[in-house]
Computed example of a mutant assay.
Amino acid sequence: MTLFRPCIDLHQGQVKQIVGASLNSDEPTTLKTNFVATHPPAYYAATYRAHGLSGSHVIKLGSDNDAAAKEALAAWPKGLQVGGGITIDNAQEWLDAGAHKVIVTSWLFPNAKFSSARLEALCAKIGKESIVVDVSCKRRGDKWIVAMNKWQTPTNTEVNKETLDYMAQYCSEFLVHAADVEGLCQGIDEDLVKRLGEWCTIPCTYAGGGKETGDLQLVEKLSDGKVDLTFGSALDMFGGTGVKFDDCVAWNRSKGQVQQ
């Protein structure tokens, strides 16, 4: 069954919603920001905790976000996943700080090339149940290529069944941002969602382009209930108008995820 999975995106220490394709620069002239929160990260973490929204992820977009991320983790110890700058050297530190799981991307791709040795070593150190592999990607024709460094650098790795089957041996979940549509609220990448439903053998959360509550039903249909969905800029708690947070909570309750 498809569930709603909320997020806390951090940029320069604040909760923000940003158009993913604009993250190549921190300059205000090129960075496109849809929302800057007045509430601290802990507010969102506590809200998610109150509604039992497990699988929520905290993403550090760039530097100067560690303190904000730890604030969120402190508000819901062992209830959130954290990603952004995760390596084999700091993964355990983030787990000790209260993360339920760590989300890893760029470190797995030195020189933009996938390192199976790094993934296997991380798994050996902290265990697959503590690892979420982020295979966020950009579309290239009829394929999707993993993108790293805030979704700006394409790697040598295609998101497909072979790739996901291999990685699934060493992680417990996938997180997939469709970087081309992230933050645009113009609709999900339906082809990608369908493929993820066909390819994934472990839990998978898709993010990017969600614009209305009905997208939960659409993702459930396209993926046969195997892919969860994150709303960002469209969500009313992030200044959006297309999706009400309360409706997402109600959807999860209808699927048997009860309030804590």
Rank of each mutant, 00 (worst) to 15 (best):
Val36Asn: 13
Ala37Trp: 07
Thr47Asp: 13
Leu61Gly: 10
Gly62Val: 00
Thr30Gly: 04
Thr30Arg: 11
His51Phe: 14
Ala45Glu: 07
Thr38Glu: 14
Phe35Ile: 09
Ala68Cys: 11
Pro41Ser: 01
Lys32Gln: 06
Pro41Ala: 03
Tyr44Trp: 14
Asp64Asn: 14
Asn65Ala: 05
Tyr44Pro: 12
His57Met: 14
His51Leu: 06
Thr47Ser: 12
Tyr48Gly: 09
Thr33Lys: 01
Ala68Gly: 00
Ser54Met: 11
Pro41Ile: 02
His39Glu: 14
Ile59Met: 07
Tyr48Ile: 12
Leu53His: 05
His39Asn: 13
Ala42Asp: 11
Leu53Ile: 14
Ser63Asn: 06
Gly62Pro: 01
Asp66Gln: 02
Ser54Leu: 14
Thr38Asp: 04
Asn34Gly: 00
Ala68Ser: 13
Tyr44Ile: 12
Asn65Asp: 05
Thr38Phe: 05
His39Lys: 13
Ala68Leu: 02
Ala50Met: 09
Arg49Cys: 00
Asn65Cys: 10
Leu61Lys: 03
Lys32Cys: 09
Thr33Phe: 09
His39Gly: 01
Ser54Trp: 15
His51Val: 04
Thr30Ser: 02
Ser56Ile: 09
Gly55Gln: 15
Gly55Asn: 15
Ser54Val: 14
Leu53Gly: 13
His39Gln: 15
Thr47Asn: 10
Ser54Gln: 15
Val36Phe: 08
His39Phe: 08
Ser63Leu: 10
Ala37Glu: 05
His51Gly: 00
Ser56Tyr: 05
Leu53Tyr: 13
Ala68Tyr: 08
Leu53Arg: 14
Pro41Phe: 02
Arg49Asp: 05
Lys60Gly: 07
Asp66Thr: 05
Ser63Trp: 05
Arg49Val: 03
Val36Trp: 00
Asn65His: 06
Ile59Arg: 08
Ala46Pro: 11
His51Ser: 02
Ala50Asp: 12
Ser54Ala: 15
Asn34Thr: 10
Val58Thr: 15
Thr47Tyr: 12
Asn34Met: 06
Asn65Thr: 05
Ser63Pro: 07
Pro40Phe: 02
Gly52Thr: 02
His51Pro: 03
Asp66Trp: 06
Thr38Ile: 04
His57Gln: 14
Ala45Ile: 10
Ala67Trp: 01
Tyr43Asp: 02
Phe35His: 04
Leu53Ala: 06
Leu53Ser: 11
Thr29Glu: 10
Lys60Phe: 00
Ala42Met: 05
Thr29Gln: 08
Thr30Ile: 02
Val36Ala: 14
Pro40Ala: 10
